[in-house]
């Protein structure tokens, strides 16, 4: 039973997947989408719980055993707790219950007009959809009537934007006129008349992602260039005939890519294109046909229950 049930489920779903590929009726397609997207998401959500359990267990074990570099496991566990806390209470874009902003934003005055500065993404989001900053606290209630949204367009602002607006009103009262259009945040119009400036940082999942994950990922990706150099060095050593052909082909393709080389050798570009379009593409297609057939064979082996390694070993 331990094997029969998953194999039966898999067989039925696989046959369904095959049928839905050839049937164009909308109900069939909708049900197929439900299986592929919604149900897979639910299964994925449960699997993530298992994955998190595994992650915590793995690093706890390392700390307990004092395995090599066990200190890094503390970094991982602390990062996990902080990220979860920020995600749960700070929201993806700072819409949660945590104080989303340290300080505020830049307010500038120039030639008698006040400009509000936000970062580029925030400004774009705010200008395109002010309602996305809806706040149940109804921050606008404390504002003077003349600063309310235009008639028929009820706009709610977050606590942060309400505070920002209040500052602007104060500046207005001080004799400044509000500018109609915000100046793009990357251009500073504040030439000696800056009224306030404060750092802008949100406690949000997006801030953590953009501030930590993206730079780290970019660093790893950038290292690829150096790995490519060392791999190319190894690949282009002329150990035998095949490596020699590879070296010559690569040399022509790289040289043909350079505009200056094609000025001196006009046919180089055509030769490069021929190498890419004929021998290179032919071998790629050969591999791809093999991959297609291999994938089909693997699928059929699993559907028909011939291949059972994915169920682990053992008897029924």
């Amino acid at each position: 039973m331990k094997r029969k049930i998953p194999m039966t489920i898999m067989f039925i779903l696989a046959i369904w997947g095959g049928i839905s590929y050839f049937v164009g009726k909308t109900p069939v397609r909708n049900f197929d989408n439900l299986l592929r997207n919604r149900l897979l998401l639910i299964v994925g959500a449960f699997a993530i719980i298992l994955g998190l359990g595994s992650l915590i267990f793995h690093h706890s074990q390392k700390i307990r055993r004092k395995a090599r570099f066990w200190q890094y496991s503390y970094v991982m566990l602390i990062a996990l707790v902080v990220t979860t806390f920020v995600g749960l209470f700070g929201g993806v874009r700072g819409e949660g219950r945590l104080p989303t902003i340290f300080g505020g934003t830049m307010l500038g005055a120039h030639e008698g007009k006040v400009y509000a500065f936000m970062n580029r993404d925030e400004l774009n989001t705010f200008m395109s959809n002010p309602a996305s900053y809806a706040d149940p606290d109804k921050a606008l209630m404390d504002l003077p009537r003349e600063m309310d949204a235009p008639e028929g367009e009820q706009v709610f602002l977050s606590r942060y934007h309400a505070a920002l607006l209040r500052q602007e009103i104060e500046l207005q009262h001080a004799g400044y006129e509000m500018a109609d259009e915000p100046i793009p945040p990357m251009i500073s119009p504040v030439s000696g008349e800056t009224v306030r400036y404060r750092a802008d940082f949100k406690i949000s999942l997006q801030a953590l992602y953009e501030g930590i994950m993206v730079p780290c990922g970019s660093t790893m990706f950038a290292m690829l260039a150096f790995y490519m150099c060392s791999a190319a060095y190894r690949a282009f050593r002329m150990r035998n005939l095949h490596a020699g052909i590879l070296l010559v082909s690569a040399f022509i393709v790289m040289l043909g890519q350079i505009p200056l080389a094609t000025v001196f050798i006009p046919w180089l570009h055509d030769l490069r294109q021929w190498i890419l379009d004929v021998p290179n593409l032919a071998s790629k297609r050969g591999i791809m046909i093999g991959v297609g057939l291999g994938a089909s064979a693997t699928s059929f082996k699993i559907i028909l229950g011939i291949e059972r390694a994915w169920l682990g070993g053992g008897d029924e």
């Binding site: 699997a47 298992l50 595994s54 390694a309 994915w310 169920l311 682990g312 070993g313 053992g314």
Partner: peptide, 19 residues
């Protein structure tokens, strides 16, 4: 991938048991 992890874990565990 968490789903792949779940299956991989079962495969290894079952293999140890079956052997």
């Amino acid at each position: 991938d968490p789903i792949v992890y779940t299956i991989a874990r079962e495969i290894v565990k079952e293999t140890y048991a079956s052997e």
